[in-house]
Nucleic acid binder design. Sequence first.
DNA 1: CTAGCGGGCGAG
DNA 2: CATCGCTCGCCCGCTAG
Length: 994
Amino acid sequence: MDYEELAQLLSDASSLDASPQEPPPPPPPDSPLRLYDSSRGAIARERSQRPFSQQQRLLSTLDDDSLVGLVNTFDRPTQRARLRRPAAPADDAADAEDDPCIVTSSPEPPSSVVPSTPPASSRLSESDSSSDRSRSSSPTAARVGPLKFGDYAQYFSDKTAHQHSRDEYMRKLYQDALNGGREYPPIFKDCTIYINGRTFPDRLQLHQKIIIHGGSFKHFLSGKKSVTHIVASNLTAKKRIEFQNYKVVAPAWITESIAASKRLPWQDYALITGEYGQQKLQIARPPAAALPAPEQQPADGFDANSLDCKQPGFLQSFFAKSRLHQLSAWKADLRALFCEKYVEGAHLQPPPKGARLAIFHVDFDCFFATVSALSDARYDLSRDPLAVAHGNNSSEIASCNYVARSFGVKNGMWVRSARRLCPNLICLPYNFEQYEVNSKLLYQILAGSGFFQMILPISIDEAICVKYLDGLPDGDASAHQQCEAITRQIRRDVFDATNGCTVSIGCSNSLVLARLALKKAKPNGQCVMASLEQDSIDAFIEELPLRDLPGVGATIVDKVQQHILFEQTAEPTIGDLKRNSSLQLLASKLGTKTGHKLHLFLSGKDDEENSRVLRDPLDYFARKSISVDINYAIRFDTIHEIDEFIDRICEHLTTKLGELDMVTPQVTLKVTRRCEHAPIEPAKYLGSGECDTFSRSSRFGVPTCEAGLISTEVKSSFRMLGCPPKDLRGIAVQLNKLEKVSDRVCQLRLPFREQDASSAGSRFPALNVNAFNSLPGALKEDVRTELLKRKINLPPSPPSKRSASNSPVKDYWGRHGKRTETLKQEMPSTLDEDFMNHLPTQIQREIKWDHAIVKKASSSVRNRLSRKGTGVLNLSKNRPSKPEAVKFQSLERPLGISRLIKSWIDDTIDNGPHIDDLNLFDKYLTKLAAKGKTHHILKIARTMSSHLEYHSSFTKSNPQGRQEWEEYLLIRMIPTLTASAAKSDSGVQVTFDL
DNA sequence: CTAGCGGGCGAG
DNA sequence: CATCGCTCGCCCGCTAG
Ligand SMILES: Nc1ccn([C@H]2C[C@H](O)[C@@H](COP(=O)(O)OP(=O)(O)OP(=O)(O)O)O2)c(=O)n1
């Protein structure tokens, strides 16, 4: 570019594009906004505030980059000084002497005023193949002397060269990150495009689209020949005249050409209808209308967009819009990808033991909010308070920008509450696709940089990069400088590649410290903590909130406040806890492991568990379970609908399981049920409101991946948990302890042979034929069917005609009624352990119940009851009461109560329980029943039954007390249980019709 | 004493 | 119209055996 062109450019300058706006009041000095705001907003504000001058007119013809670049030429001498020592800017170097932590935030170099493409960037990639890029950057800057403002020619020439190499880098990056390394179709080959004014998609995004599709891009109108197309959304009258001899098109020309994979005729998108005589299209929309078109829903059979959980498409449509689901799914994908690559690249070794590491914790700033904001031209990330959410009231905020945070808005808040803090909060829609694109770019940049030996995925917007520092002595200053420089380059590349998303990076020697450094660096900053002295580490973390430590959430902070710090301060710091605790104290108040972990974290050290990711990443990232949780929009009326829903969930899970080539030996059902006192419809539309949860797991004799098997087990568990269908608010199915099919030895499916029983190599104990044969007839048939399903060979069986029930117990009682005499004979006195272990938990439990109940039923109780005719308990009032029994009122679950009950029975086995205690206990049971905790009552009943059983096993005679206990169990306990089960209206399968 | 269960917690 | 409150892994206390 020559002076003449520039002169023309300057004289051609016309009006401003940006409309003047009132700047917001300056944020408080300590607000994070202060740093952040100055990154992008400052320039724009300056520009719009002052009255127009001739100079401004000139400047208005420049795009943002060029403008800022020009402004930055003032800064050239300083920049040069920095470039000579790229990793340690002068002021920082001084700090480094006593402050181990150097925080560089946005207004500071190296990002310069605007992180985007400053004229002199300092690239230092060792692995950079396009050496052109590095040559054109820092050496150029060093060569050029201090520029006077207005020394345009040199500036633009540097910039053009730099831009060109930058374009090459981006083209490659996009190919690798988003197109599997293949080239994009060169749709815009031989096009040189200039973008005028505000557009949607914005200038940066269009730039990207153009260059990756083979076009070139001009940041300024330089001479009439070189630019082939001008892209604009709308034109002022003046521009219209000025551009009349150009091909001026709407942005849709770019996007639709790309969509069509070919360059569409520009005339169809022409903004100026002049000599070409084309009909003018109404493409140019005012920015306010420039929203992405809402996606169309296919209308095939059912409403795919429906929030009706009874619809077959519900699961998919819910997942498609659930941020938390996407987050989890992305994470799983990243982990799987990591494992895949890690196995492929066998050369990748975990760091040698004791190697010094630099850990870089990289995280996009307010990821969703930033991405969503950048795809909407109306909003300014650095000035408007923004959040991403679906709705306007009880909708959760997935992410809010730092402007909103300065008002106290937080991720996860409801929009309504956030608006109380920040009335002008603007809600943006989700843009999951773009989140994914930007994430890929980030990971590609990290991987392609060649700086790191390992890149550990944390989430869609976050990664931990590990660099081995071999050969460098401890505390070596150059290591620190190197880390600073790496950090800087990554941040710049990501910003450029994503058209404006900032990442922050924390860097240190441990995972914990890197995380804390990251926290300190945010937003849009970096923090390298290279010092190894404990004193300086302590000084660094001293003042940080305890809450910032990984694994320390609200509950742990509460516990600490309550038991250790006694609420001395509202927001305890790491230093507070460190000063006031010991390893022992922490372990006793928080549990052994947690206490130990926290103790190490307080000194900035990793513990065994969190550093596992470094030592054995493959194991760390390996999938151990898979689950589906739905706690939204669950509104069912009948158990049948729930069964169908469970079927769909299991179908979904087994599909995944199949893709993973895995099988599961265990399934857990978690039921989320509306609290008794909670309103039927909660504040949040289709939300779950306040709920209790119940869970139950069952095992398969042989690991499986069959939806039918799993589904049956889950449906059965659901009935056991006894939740009335209308009160169901959430349901989760987890498949645990997954095993890779290829890892499993075929022996598990080998036909049963007698000699296998003694074979030491068999992981699977053989079926005990005697035990099997001693089962009562009906049970035996159920068990046989079960074993057959698993292709486990059986001893020969008599022909059976069993009914199609899936509850062996029910069948059993249904068929045998009260014929206790025969039952007693058929039931073995003890259950064979090996045999039991072969059975699914469901059946195991029912057998055990049977066992207990049958024995009970055949004991003296039944006889006495029938003899007496009524079940009136003969309880005296003057027996010693057991004071602990009072605790029934406060005990929430029967786990802790089991012990109590046992000791209660122990103490009263001779004389019987006190009537007051029993009444109290009754109340407790009634309460449990009211809360729908049928299974807890069941458990208590079971505990009582088996404990009485235990007593009777070594007492030949029937003491008075035990008889009373047994009567209580049969006369009051079991009716309570059946009543509770009936009330829950869910077909609990436990039948007590003795 | 250990294994396994149900439940809690934290993370993004 | 609202609204899309998931999913994983570890740890804890308790109990059965
Ligand atoms: N309760 C939450 C937490 C996070 N996210 C999503 C939105 C976030 O953008 C993304 C990343 O989470 P971060 O914890 O990293 O939070 P941000 O990126 O929003 O902010 P920060 O700058 O603090 O990292 O995950 C979410 O949907 N709901």
